[in-house]
């Protein structure tokens, strides 16, 4: 009896002691602090996403009853011509993304050498990124409109109205015109990211290089580019996946007409005008899969071809070194063998 009575408080104390232990306290703090952000993340990201996955298996409108149709929506996505042809429109935006990165790299390298007025241009070029996409759409809607801004500027330089293409109507040029607006919008932002990475390069390197007779081009190729490789790759991946999901320029400027409908614009039309919510959800998930595939493929490509910028030595250099070591070993062996003979 007394033994039992003694055992109970002992157990209790051990629980309290357990709670007081450092590791347990740390664990508790972590769980408590994680609780709120995790809750928000679940509520606003993962639960809606799970719902979308669920919807993609249904034939449903926004309101009204839903019928389960299995994979039919996914089959439709792959069979419909209009959906897949819209992915080709994204190629224009990918082309735009390459131009945009090249421009951003160019301007960032100019500014890193502290040219006069660099901070003004930095601000001026970053500015478009601060305007909301819809407003940019309206700006360019009027910029490209027949006889408006762009046409009048070209006329000032002596071009005839007949020679100027209809920027939004002519199918050989309208997607390029739209992709140009997103280049205009994101170049500044990419430039700032590059500039940030370039600033972290030790400036002694430039000085040393110029003492060795390297010009600016050499400095760019052999010092800057290798040091910011990882941020270039990151920007490239972001731009490519961004161009697959291009939406605002075609939606606001042309409403996806005249052959400018990107995947997102078609998806929006199917979800809202035709109320095929299930099909649109399936489209969203297919796009997600495509973006993941593209990203992984890009990652692998860069890892194989250039290394992804995470290690100090590039793959090519490693291969060269290993080859040299091997050759040295062989030579040594041969030399040994020769001696033995």
């Amino acid at each position: 009896m007394s033994k039992q009575a003694a055992a109970v408080p002992k157990k209790k104390r051990s629980f309290m002691e357990l709670m007081k232990r450092r590791e347990v306290q740390r664990g508790l703090v972590i769980v408590l602090f994680m609780f709120v952000p995790l809750l928000l993340l679940m509520t606003f990201t993962y639960i809606p996403f799970a719902k979308m996955v669920q919807f993609s298996f249904y034939d449903m409108k926004y309101i009204g009853e839903r019928t389960f149709v299995g994979l039919q929506n996914y089959i439709d996505v792959f069979q419909r011509e209009d959906i897949f042809s819209s992915l080709f429109v994204s190629l224009y935006y990918m082309g735009g993304a390459i131009v945009q990165l090249a421009l951003a790299l160019f301007f960032a390298s100019l500014m890193v050498f502290k040219e006069r007025g660099a901070s003004f241009f930095k601000g001026a070029m970053f500015f478009p990124y601060l305007i909301c996409g819809i407003a940019i759409g309206f700006i360019f809607k009027f910029f490209y409109a027949r006889g408006f801004v762009l046409d009048s500027i070209l006329q000032m330089f002596g071009m005839n109205m007949e020679d100027i293409p209809m920027w939004l109507q002519d199918q050989s040029i309208n997607n390029i015109a739209l992709a140009a607006t997103s280049v205009w919008r994101y170049t500044g932002q990419n430039m700032i990211l590059f500039l940030g990475a370039m600033m972290s390069v030790d400036s002694d390197l430039y000085e040393a290089a110029s003492l060795d007779g390297a010009n600016k081009w050499h400095q760019f190729i052999y010092i800057i580019l290798p040091s910011i490789k990882s941020i270039v790759v990151l920007n490239l991946i972001l731009s490519i996946s961004g161009s697959l999901s291009a939406f605002e320029p075609p939606y606001v400027i042309t409403n996806g007409t005249m052959g400018t409908g990107t995947y997102f614009v078609i998806m929006n039309r199917i979800a809202h005008e035709n109320q095929k919510v299930g099909l649109a959800c399936a489209m969203a998930i297919v796009l997600l899969a495509i973006i993941i595939l593209c990203t992984v493929a890009q990652k692998l490509f860069f890892k194989y071809a250039f290394d992804d910028g995470t290690s100090d030595e590039s793959k090519a250099a490693v291969r060269k070194r290993k080859k040299a070591e091997k050759a040295a070993k062989k030579a040594a062996q041969r030399a040994k063998g020769g001696q033995a003979k």
Binding site: K61, Q169, Q171, N255, G256, T257, M258, G259, R269, I270, E273, N274, Q275, K276
Partner: peptide, 24 residues
């Protein structure tokens, strides 16, 4: 109307498509 996506009175796109076909 929704199933066919001809979109009478609710989707402008088929009519835009009509105009594009005539224009080009």
């Amino acid at each position: 109307n929704n199933e066919s996506e001809v979109g009478i009175n609710n989707d402008d796109y088929p009519n835009c498509y009509l105009l594009e076909s005539a224009l080009y």
